[in-house]
Design a protein around this nucleic acid. Structure first.
Lengths: 239, 239
DNA sequence: GTTACCAGCTTGTCTGACAAGTTTCCAGCA
DNA sequence: TGCTGGAAACTTGTCAGACAAGCTGGTAAC
């Protein structure tokens, strides 16, 4: 299983060597040749096998780390870098965040897409009515009630509520893109919550709206749930 | 304007130094302190000003480059790295692509999300009726007619057609996510086209469906366009 | 059997070096 | 004066070596 690192480096035009190294390892990861949790050889061994210096290997590893494909050798340890599957999601989220911060995609567009996806997910969830998803949403709602004026806690519960309902739609693409979008929108939501003069009252209002949404989904009325959701989101993001 | 690099490095717990450096420069870019096109100091100068070694600076720059925030010092040149705005978007797209590739989201889910987004985009495009988008779609359609039985060429034109219409919705988030989804779905679409016993006839049918969609958008009837689209996609992906 | 310790390995970082290419600038020449 | 040639300086890319700090595994002593 180590042959992956032994093949000759492809000769690419003027591309720096570390890019080539990173691309090759990336391709091995994405193709599944290196599966989740696989430990890569140590930097020294990689450098020896690929025939490049350790600095070059380190830069390649930094690139892969920035892409979320390997989970960094934790500071000081004897463990080499590890291939990771879950790392790519926060990276994608922070990349989206950068796009938004640089003004490439307006926040309003992100909110629009989020509303679109969540509305569709609520309709699907109202049809499926998966008990586990409804229970998870109910638990999040309960947590939100308990949070009271604790904005941080309420926010976490809010996120869990929406995520649970969207997972109830049983569409991995919905859940995935929603999670990425949420990361990008989260900061703004937190700001809005923090700016509220009466956090406790606002949270109570949100809880009430969530109750309406959950009840509509339970009743199988996806359109009502989606309509309530749109009002719920508009309340926060202006529109 | 160089003070940005002179401030002391924040003391972060166990985080490697290069991460801290990268985070600080990243923050300066996202906050606008370093605007588009600004040339960063050379590696040596950065290393001197920040009080870290050049290797550390190089790793930080690799991270920023992987995040699309700086456009890499082109191999060999006297030009330092340059802050860039456009780089983040393709990076976000490829990060999402990695998530999809690793997350093993079922194809049907991806197609479902694509259909959802494209339907909404068609409705928005039918309202906006942006002339440039309609013309781009028309051009892609013409290219598709000219492609005939050339599956490769027809596929490229097909992609361009859908992308043009979605861009017509004027929602950056739609366009971004659509591009990512397209990358993940493209291979399957190609397979479907290749498997067709009568490529020329199939392409002709697709062209006819595209004509219907474009006409509906031109007429401002977004719902008809979306309905036609759903039939169009179902024809390919089963459902 | 348990514990303490030491050698070896890993990452993080710095320094120094060199190759190849580009830029700048100055001296020499028309 | 104006132009040209080339050298010096600077840049990135890459390598090699060194050291600190921390983890691991084996081993010797108790």
């Amino acid at each position: 299983m180590e042959d992956v690192f032994d093949r000759a480096l492809a000769e690419v035009g003027r591309e720096p060597l570390c890019m080539t190294v990173a691309s090759q390892i990336r391709a091995s990861i994405l193709s599944g040749a290196l599966s989740d949790g696989t430990a890569l050889p140590s930097e020294k061994e990689l450098s020896a096998r690929l025939g490049v210096g350790r600095s070059t290997v380190r830069e390649a590893l930094r690139i892969l780390q920035a892409q979320g494909l390997i989970s960094g050798g934790s500071s000081v340890s004897t463990k080499g870098p590890v291939v990771t599957r879950d790392g790519a999601l926060p990276i994608a989220a922070s990349a989206l965040e950068a796009v938004v911060a640089l003004g490439q995609v307006p926040l309003a567009d992100l909110v629009g897409l989020r509303t679109l996806i969540e509305s569709a997910a609520l309709r699907a969830a109202a049809e499926a009515r998966r008990e586990d998803a409804l229970e998870a949403a109910e638990a999040a709602l309960e947590e939100m009630r308990a949070a009271g004026a604790d904005v941080e806690r309420a926010h976490r519960a809010d996120v869990a509520f929406h995520a649970a309902l969207i997972d109830g739609a049983d569409n991995g693409a919905y859940s995935l893109v929603y999670r990425v979008l949420r990361e990008s929108i989260a900061a703004h939501l937190r700001d809005a919550l923090d700016a509220e003069p009466d956090p406790g009252g606002t949270v109570a209002r949100l809880v009430a709206e969530h109750e309406d949404i959950l009840e509509a989904v339970r009743a199988g009325d996806g359109h009502a749930a989606a309509a309530t959701l749109r009002g719920h989101l508009d309340g926060f993001y202006g529109s």
